[in-house]
Computed example of a mutant assay.
Amino acid sequence: MSTLLHHIKIDNQPLYYLDEGHGPVVIFCHGLLTNSTMWRSQIDQLSSQYRCIAIDFWGHGKTTTIPESVENLQDVAQHVLTLMDNLEINSAAIVGHGSGGAIAAELILHAPARINGLVMLNSFVGFEPQVNCVKYQGLMAQVANEQAITADLAQTISTLFFSKDIEQLISLDPNLANIVAQFSAELTSYSSAQLSALLKFANMAIFKRDTLESVELLTLPTLVAIGLSGYLRTALESYLMHDCIDGSQLLHIEQAGHLANIEKPVIFNQHLVDFLSKVNFN
């Protein structure tokens, strides 16, 4: 498969995605303010055995617009199914990060027979706590007022996304410093037009519906993973989801934050490979 991004049209708007490798399909769903590139280490690890599809959701990465008809994450989940139909993919495993995990849950609740396995990384499918909503609304209000993500705001967001122990991690892996700097730089590169789509997606992600009780219905193999040194999600939330999803596995990653798959790729990849090896893709 080409490493170039492809796209499909949904309501005349292009939704971009990466398609690499051959074999059983694994779909990667990023969270708010990230994009398909966050999964590079995982795709490099898996693409020799799996067909890896990583989506740039509305307002993120190469996908700079959003259809007027999109109202919530249920709609976005339907778009993932539309992509699967377009690519003639009957079933897949799905890996979701942040709000991407909520999208994955919505997809499975709508079409459970089409998903073989679920990985949720630093995701929570219940209502967003009010204190978080207020904080995130404040950040997005700054973006709306400035019609840009300023360097100062990008630094604030970057701090929230990486581990509380990021300086120690950088001392062990100096390349992480470049990754942190690149993350901040990408945030400041959004055009004013793309920010409009981003803000609409952000509102849907922040005020997503509560599906915590509904995920009790999930019967597929599930891995719930969280970085224990993050600012955005808590270990308690991972315990709640682990308890709600019968038979799920729980992975706590020490010293990692919201982007645990980037900060601790060896550990996350090891558990991801092991998990997928036990998924029945037939």
Results as ranks from 00 to 15, higher is better:
Ala256Lys: 02
Asn132Ser: 11
Thr3Asp: 14
Ala185Tyr: 02
Gly98Ala: 11
Leu195Asp: 11
Glu254Lys: 09
Pro14Ile: 09
Leu272Phe: 02
Ser196Thr: 15
Pro129Leu: 04
Phe57Pro: 01
Ala235Lys: 07
Thr219Lys: 13
Asp165Ile: 02
Thr234Met: 01
Gln142Lys: 13
Gln42Cys: 14
His97Pro: 12
Leu15Asp: 13
Leu251Trp: 06
Gln45His: 12
Gln130Ile: 10
Lys278Tyr: 00
Gln147Met: 03
Gln45Leu: 15
Ala185Ile: 08
Ile206His: 03
Asn269Trp: 09
Lys208Arg: 15
Asp56Arg: 05
Glu68Arg: 12
Gly61Glu: 01
Asn90Ile: 08
Gly100Ala: 05
Ile10Lys: 06
Asn90Trp: 02
Tyr190Ser: 12
Phe127Lys: 04
Ala235Glu: 13
Ala177Phe: 10
Val25Ser: 10
Met120His: 11
Glu216Met: 06
Asp19Ser: 09
Gln130Glu: 11
Gly100Cys: 02
Asp11Glu: 15
Ile103Trp: 02
Gln78Lys: 02
Gln270Lys: 11
Gly257Pro: 05
Leu33Trp: 00
Ala77Ser: 09
His242Lys: 13
His60Cys: 15
Glu20Ile: 00
Ser158Phe: 04
Ile53Arg: 00
Pro112Gln: 06
Leu212Phe: 13
Gly227Ser: 02
Thr150Gln: 03
Tyr239Arg: 14
Tyr50Glu: 13
Ala54Asp: 05
Met204Trp: 11
Thr82Glu: 03
Leu218Met: 08
Thr34Ala: 12
Tyr136Lys: 10
Ile170Trp: 12
Gly23Trp: 05
Glu88Ile: 14
Val273Leu: 04
Gln137Glu: 14
Leu176Glu: 07
Ile149Ala: 10
Leu109Pro: 06
Ala202Gly: 14
Leu228Arg: 10
Asn122Ala: 03
Ile206Arg: 14
Gly247Pro: 10
His271Gly: 15
Asn86Ile: 09
Val180Asp: 01
Ile170Val: 14
Lys208Ser: 09
Lys164Val: 13
Leu259Met: 15
Ala144Leu: 02
Leu187Cys: 06
Phe201Ser: 15
Ile8Val: 09
Cys29Leu: 04
Met204Asp: 15
Pro24Asn: 00
Glu68Tyr: 00
Val134Ser: 14
Ser277Asn: 12
Ser238His: 08
Val215Met: 05
Thr222Pro: 02
Tyr17Met: 05
Val95Asn: 15
Thr222Tyr: 01
Leu73Cys: 01
Ser248Leu: 03
Leu236Thr: 14
Leu250Met: 07
Glu254Ile: 14
Gly31Glu: 06
Ser47Trp: 07
Ile226Ala: 04
Glu88Cys: 12
Ala104Ser: 15
Arg114Cys: 12
Thr3Lys: 02
Ile253Ser: 09
